[in-house]
Simulated scan of single mutants.
Amino acid sequence: MMRRQTVLAKSAGMEARLTWYNPGETMPVHGHRAHQLSWLLSGEMCETSRGTARELVRISRGIKPAGLPHANLYGPAGALVLALNIEPDAPLCTDLTLPGDWDWSAPSAEISLEIQRILVALHDGAISADLALSDLAGRALEGEGETTGRPAASADRWLNRVREQLRDDPDEPDMQQLAAQAGIHRVHLSRRFTRQYGLPPSLYRLRCKLGRAISGLMQGESAAEAAQAGGFADQAHFTRAARRQTGMTPSHLRALLAA
């Protein structure tokens, strides 16, 4: 199955693309002609550059200067990525010209919400492409938020097992049981998990459910079917979760990324 991609907007040396990558899809080492600001909106991915791998499981913002060699592996539920490409000679790019500058960080809750509002307003035609792209780039270059994307394979084995169960178990995992298997208190488990992956187990579980539902949607399921496959109580719960995390409803995503 081919990945889904659409150009959301173009303006004065900038272009915003929304792409859904297939579950388990890989991209060999490559570089981009333009500078790129990216947001991982849903799903998971691992990006490798210059021998360093970053495993991303939460909403994250990435900066890649033009020509930076990197490779990507997308998670078991795929990944929804918003990319803002900026021509290297655009005046806005001065903060991205340092050699070797490669960064993934977790934007603050305020910036994440603003990005979602900008996307909704752009899709609804309430703001121009020029204004939307300038604001998206400006917020990305704020540099707020902690570094995210822990080194791949750096987690303890028991933490990896907890993550797999949170991601793959169709039923809600018993945190007390998972903690007992690791020989620690469940509060300690939550703290260790959050330090390792950048978000608590409950929010990681919700993010995985959303990733599965969006994956089903991209593979032709109805919104109701995708909601059920993702583990949501109903379509309304799926719709609210998608809008909160990506700024778009399932119907918006399907229309934007129609084959």
Rank of each mutant, 00 (worst) to 15 (best):
S11Y: 04
L18C: 06
L18G: 05
L18K: 02
H32Y: 11
R33N: 15
A34V: 09
L37R: 00
G43F: 02
E47F: 05
T48M: 11
G51K: 03
K64R: 14
P65M: 12
A71Q: 09
L73F: 11
A77F: 05
A77G: 07
G78Q: 03
L80I: 05
A83H: 11
N85H: 14
I86V: 13
P88I: 04
D89A: 15
A90H: 15
L96A: 01
T97G: 09
G100N: 08
G100Y: 04
G100A: 11
S112M: 07
E114Y: 09
Q116V: 12
L119Y: 00
L122N: 03
L122I: 03
L122T: 05
D124N: 10
D124V: 11
G125L: 08
G125C: 09
S128D: 08
S128L: 07
L131R: 12
S134A: 15
R139W: 07
G143C: 06
G145D: 01
T148P: 01
P151W: 07
S154E: 03
W158T: 06
D168A: 10
D169V: 04
P170I: 03
P173I: 01
L178P: 03
H185R: 11
H185Y: 10
H185P: 06
S190H: 07
R191P: 03
R191H: 10
R192H: 06
R192G: 06
R195N: 09
P200Q: 08
K209S: 02
E221V: 02
A224V: 08
A224Y: 04
A226Y: 02
A229D: 10
F232H: 06
D234Q: 04
H237I: 09
T239C: 12
R240K: 14
R243T: 11
R243C: 09
T249M: 09
P250M: 03
P250G: 03
L253N: 06
A258N: 12
A259T: 12
A259H: 12
